[in-house]
């Protein structure tokens, strides 16, 4: 078994992302080195040695535990998510969100953090040349529309990579 080496940040969005109703989108801007590392997933000189690429949803906060968030990579604006299942990465359940969002609770810091493996989908998008190498659009869609009074906040959306030891 190979253990992941040190993780490295490739890019982030510009601030907090508020999810209301049927979700929201943000753009993750990649650093110069991040663009090179992502491009190396397909046929680059270090393609074999590169590890996974992960989407990070950091410090997700809110008071609505009963939601499941579906995340999409490169979903076109105004497109129906149901028509682009191939662009969906993974789903995350927000069980424990309310408790994790309490500042003085038992949690080390407010919010939940999720890491989703997007290696496969990025590789496919790069192979089909349908991915902008500088920016990656990330769309987060609840499986059911959130009630009007509910807002879920994602502290930061980021993309990481690890290389195999």
């Amino acid at each position: 078994m190979t253990l992941p080496k040190e993780a490295e940040l490739l890019g982030t969005n510009s601030g907090e992302l508020e999810l209301k109703g049927s979700g929201a989108s943000t753009v993750v801007k990649l650093s110069t080195d991040g663009q090179r590392r992502v491009a190396a997933l397909v046929g680059g000189p270090s393609a074999e040695s590169s590890g996974g690429v992960y989407l990070g949803l950091e410090k997700v906060r809110g008071t609505f535990d009963a939601a499941v968030l579906n995340t999409y990579i490169n979903l076109p604006e105004d497109a129906r998510p149901a028509d682009h299942r191939d662009l969906m990465t993974e789903s995350v359940g927000l069980y424990g969100l309310r408790r994790a969002s309490t500042l003085q609770g038992e949690n080390k810091s407010p919010g939940l953090t999720f890491l989703l493996d997007i290696t496969q989908i990025l590789t496919e998008l790069l192979t089909s040349k349908s991915l902008n190498s500088e920016e990656i659009r990330v769309t987060i869609v609840p499986d059911r529309p959130l009630p009007d009074s509910i807002t879920i906040v994602v502290g930061r959306v980021s993309i990481f990579t690890t290389s195999s030891a």
Partner: peptide, 16 residues
């Protein structure tokens, strides 16, 4: 304890 809890709080940071 309130101060210690705050010391444990690590918020997201801008990258660029």
């Amino acid at each position: 304890q309130r101060c210690l809890n705050r010391c444990h709080s690590h918020r997201p940071l801008a990258a660029f």
